[in-house]
Amino acid sequence: MAEGAEVKKEEAQADSGRRIHTYPLIRHSDMNEEMRTESMELCVTACEKFANNNENAAKMIKEAMDKRFGASWHVIVGEGYGFEVTHEVKNLLYMFFGGNMGICVWKCA
């Protein structure tokens, strides 16, 4: 019984942990403060809107970024990938979102 209770407690902790870990977490960015905030919120919006379709989320982010900050933006949305990109300085955002999603947004014409 005691063991079961412990397990439950752990689960509860894990649950709480998972719940906490859904906020956007910027891993790397060389954007300025304003741009970073805006891009991050855009990514969050896109990923929440297209929770089950990463392609559409990426497309939405890319087009919105193009419109807002000028061409040409590139977006990766996915749960597991590796990348090595050349980007214009002050135009890179690499963040995690939702606890399982990695989003990389950069600009390079």
Binding site: Y81, E84, V85
Partner: peptide
């Protein structure tokens, strides 16, 4: 100016 950044998810 450009720089390179790489990482893995």
């Amino acid at each position: 100016p450009r720089t390179t950044f790489g990482s893995g998810v």
